[in-house]
Amino acid sequence: MALIELKSVTKIYPLGSQEVVAVDDFSLSIEAGEFSVLAGPSGSGKTTLLNLIGCLDQPTRGEIWLDGREVGHAKQKTLFELRLRKIGFIFQAYNLIPVLTAAENAEFTLMLQRVGKKQRRERVLRLFSLLGLDGLEHRKPSDLSGGQQQRVAIARAMASEPAVILADEPTASLDSHASEELLALMQRLNQEQGATFIFSSHDPLVISHAKRVVRLQDGHLESDQ
C-alpha cells in the first residue's frame, strides 16, 4: 500500500456567503522514499493539499490515507498525534521558535515525544553534522542566516524520523545559491536516509530537482510526471 493515498479529495472553504473549491475530486498516491513536488501557480491548491496531507486540515469530501490509516476524518486528538509522530514540516518562513537555540529547536518534536535528553541530543548533533550546522547548536535563530535557519528547520523536521516530510515553498526565502545547496542536501537525505519528501513549489529549481512532479491547476490534477 502507498504511504499516502488521496481518494477523490475535495476541499471547499467558505468565503463570506460564497464557497471556494480549493481542491476538487483529487486523487494521488505517494510511495515511501519519493522526492515529489506539487507544482502549480498561486491558488492552484498546492498549499491546501499539503495541509490535508499534513493533517493540519481535513477534506470536505473524500479520503486521505497515511501509512495505512484513514486520517481525513480522524479526531483532533489523533491528528495531533499523527503530526507529532508521522509528519515533519518545513515552513517557508522557517518558523523556528525564537526563544530556543538551534539545537533545542531541532530537538523540539523529540522533547514532545519524551525522548531522553542524551538520545535526542545525539540524534540532533548527527543531523547538524550532516546538514553542515556544526558549532551552531547554541545559537538563537536570530543569530543564524536564512539558509542556516532553513537547515535547522530541516533538522527539526527529520529529527523524529517521520514517515513524510512536507515542505512548503522551502526555497522561497533563500537566494539561488542557498536554494541549490538546500535542495542538494534534501536530495542526499532522501537518497541516504530514505526520507520521503513532498514539496509545494512553483520554483523551477525545486521542480528540476524532484523525481516526480505533480502539476495542479485550479484544484485539479493537471499532470503527474
Binding site: 499534513g54 493540519l56 483532533q76 486528538k77 495531533f80 498525534e81 503530526r83 507529532l84 509522530r85 514540516f89 515552513f91 518558523n95 521558535i97 525564537p98 523540539f108 518534536t109 514532545l112 515525544q113 527539526r156
Partner: peptide, 16 residues
C-alpha cells in the same frame, strides 16, 4: 499566534 500554530503543527497538544 503564528508561533503557537507552528507549535501545534509540530504536535504540541492544546492542553500543553
Amino acid at each position: 499566534t503564528r508561533e503557537l500554530g507552528v507549535l501545534m503543527a509540530l504536535g504540541m497538544r492544546p492542553g500543553q
